[in-house]
Write a protein that binds this DNA or RNA. Structure first.
Lengths: 183, 183
DNA sequence: CAGGACATGTAACAGGTTACATGATTAT
DNA sequence: ATAATCATGTAACCTGTTACATGTCCTG
C-alpha cells in the first residue's frame, strides 16, 4: 500500500521513466523503501490507470524511447491525503535476530560469522550515508523545506546503521570465545 | 522463507500448539519476527507435511483439544542447516521515512504529528524491553548459552528502539517551528 | 564479437493481510 | 445476555520475488 506513495514522492522530486525510477529505488529513495524494477513497472501501470500519474513517450537518439511519468493532480491529492493519515507501525522481521536467538540449536560459530558479515554490510552502508551527509549537507543548520526533510531521513539512516553496527559489535564481543574460556 | 525457521526456534524453546505459538508471535519471538495466527497455522500444516514437526493431540478439561507441535529430527537438521547458511540483508521499508521525505508535498504538520505518534509507540516498546531486561537479565555478565543469546537479541531491540526514539526527537526538534521563525 | 547499460515488460510463484467461520467455556 | 479467551482453521486478495523475454546501442 505504500509503494504507490513512495513512487509519488519520487516522481514529485523528479519526473522519470520506469527504468530510472527503478534505479532510484536501488539508492536514494530505495535506502528507505526498496522495490524491484518489476514491481515498479507493475505499480506504475496501475497508477496510470488510476490517473495518479500521466506518461509521455520521449524519443531519444541512440537509445530506446522512454515513457516519462509525472504526478497528476489526482496523484498530488492522493499524496496529500496519505501524508495526513497516520501510518501504522511496520512489522519487524530480523532473520539475524532469529538466528542469534536460536544459535544454541546449531553451529553458534557459523551464526557469529554471519553477524560479522552483517556488521560489515551495515558499516559499508553507514560510510555511504556519511559520505552523502558530508557532500550534500555540509551546513545542516541552514537547511529548510525539502532539503531539510531529505537530511533528516538521511540522519535516520545514519543512526540506524550506527546502532546496527554497534549491536553487532556487542554480540561479537559477547559470543567470541574469550581466551580465558578456551582453556 | 524464514517464518519456518522462526517457528523451529520457537518450538525448540518450547513445544506449543498453534494457538500458543501465535500468541508467542505477538510478543517474545514476535518482537523480532512478526506473524499472524493465520500464517502460523498455514506454515505449521506445511511443516508437518515436510516432517519438520510432529503433533500430538492433547485433551484438556473445560477447553478444546489442542494439537501440540514439537520439532522432529528432520526439523532439527533443517534448523541447523539454516543457522549455518548466510542470511541476506533484509530490505528496508520505512513508510515514516518516505513520509518525512515527502512532507513538503502535503501537510508537514500532520507528518510531524505522526512522527510524535511513532516516537511514543517506540518509547513504549523500549520501556517494555527495559522491563524485561531488568526482570530477566539482572546479571548479564553471568549469562551463557541460550540465555545469553536471548539477552543479546533483547539488547538489539533496546538499541533499535532507543535509536528510533532519538531519531524522532531529532526530527521533531528540527521541524517544530521555532518561535523565532513564527514571527 | 562479447558484455554491459538502456528500456520495458510478462508469468509463475511465494509470502503476508484481511475477512470470515465455528464452537466451547468463563467472567461480567 | 455478552464479551473475552481458548482453539483451529478457510478463502480471497494483495504484495513481493524469481525467472524469463526482447531488442538496441556502446565500449573494450
Amino acid at each position: 500500500m505504500a509503494l504507490e506513495q513512495a513512487i509519488l514522492v519520487a516522481l514529485s522530486e523528479r519526473a522519470s521513466a520506469g527504468y530510472d525510477l527503478a534505479r532510484r529505488f536501488d539508492k536514494s529513495i530505495g535506502f528507505f523503501w526498496s522495490a524491484s524494477h518489476q514491481q515498479v513497472y507493475r505499480v506504475l501501470t496501475r497508477m496510470e490507470q488510476a490517473r495518479w500519474v500521466t506518461s509521455a513517450v520521449v524519443a531519444q537518439e541512440g537509445r530506446p524511447d522512454k515513457k516519462v511519468y509525472q504526478v497528476s493532480e489526482d496523484g498530488q491529492d492522493e499524496l496529500r491525503r496519505w501524508l495526513s493519515e497516520p501510518t501504522d507501525p511496520e512489522p519487524i522481521r530480523s532473520a539475524l535476530a532469529v538466528k542469534i536467538r536460536g544459535a544454541a540449536y546449531g553451529d553458534a560459530g557459523a551464526v557469529l560469522l554471519d553477524v560479522h558479515r552483517h556488521r560489515d554490510q551495515h558499516a559499508t552502508r553507514l560510510d555511504i550515508y556519511l559520505e552523502i551527509e558530508k557532500r550534500d549537507f555540509a551546513d545542516p543548520a541552514r537547511l529548510s523545506g525539502h532539503e531539510l526533510h531529505q537530511y533528516l531521513v538521511l540522519r535516520g539512516g545514519i543512526s540506524f546503521e550506527r546502532g546496527f553496527v554497534s549491536w553487532c559489535d556487542e554480540v561479537i564481543a559477547a559470543l567470541h570465545v574469550p581466551a580465558s574460556k578456551v582453556t
